[in-house]
Amino acid sequence: MSTPPSSAATASTPPSSAATAGRVRPAQRRPFPLVRHSLALMVRSLIKLRRTPEQLFDVVATPVLFMAIFVYVFGGAISGSPKEYLQFVVPGLLAQMLAFVAVPIGINLNTDITKGIFDRFRALPIPRAAPLVGAVMGDIVRYSTTIAVTLGFGLLVGFRITTSIWAAAAAVALALLFALCMSWISVWFGLIARTPGAVSGILYTLIMPLTFASTIFVPASTLPGWLQGFVRANPLTHLVGALRGLLTGGAVSGPLVWTLAWCAGFVVVFVPLALRAYRRRT
């Protein structure tokens, strides 16, 4: 403390009395509050990310690790040659990484809540969704990094995009959209779970079977019949189908429509659930 204890309180008067007349909220309510407040809260996430860039460690390391394991350890056994399998598995790994990368947001939100910072937001006259939307938007950096690292490392070890630059761009956009929509599941769990540990426990338990019981690593035809029904309904199967089509050729429209439908479904179901949980959380 720089000044004597009494100076701040007794000597000076509050700065506001001199500066402003009246005691109303100083600013006029401005239009598009959800957009502006979400952006402000997104900046908050980005400031934190800049301060601790090691938060990005997992989104860089995990794709590299998985790629190496699947291509060099399992690749030969699954599909004859690593080269061939690479073309098959890179879009798949991209889908898997997108499923994983949505988990931390729920954990972070849960931590925020236990620290009380959300109490401050909830007592402010801002749209209820803003802190959640802001957090999701702040995560775009993580999602983009995941996509860049997965595709980049894939290209480095021999993956080739055999379609067009536009199709590849569409694949990236689709991947980003999917991650943004799916992250609302994580947001919801983050708001209803009691501890950050519980959030990651639940989500990884859900995601693991989803990623393996899909066409991420093997074609559906190689799976037992009873599993095929599940695999065909799995949103990750559709996502990976669309990504394969866009990156290495093949049917696009079918899986793309299904993927978009799943994205819409995530938003329609989990955004309201998350908002409700956010309001109820005490």
């Binding site: 909220r25 100083p26 600013a27 006029q28 309510r29 401005r30 509050p33 502006r36 407040h37 402000a40 809260l41 900046v43 908050r44 401050r120 937001f121 402010l124 006259p125 801002i126 803003a130």
Partner: peptide, 10 residues
């Protein structure tokens, strides 16, 4: 500053 922004200050 964050709180100020959320209160619609410029």
């Amino acid at each position: 500053v964050l709180i100020g922004m959320l209160l619609d200050l410029r």
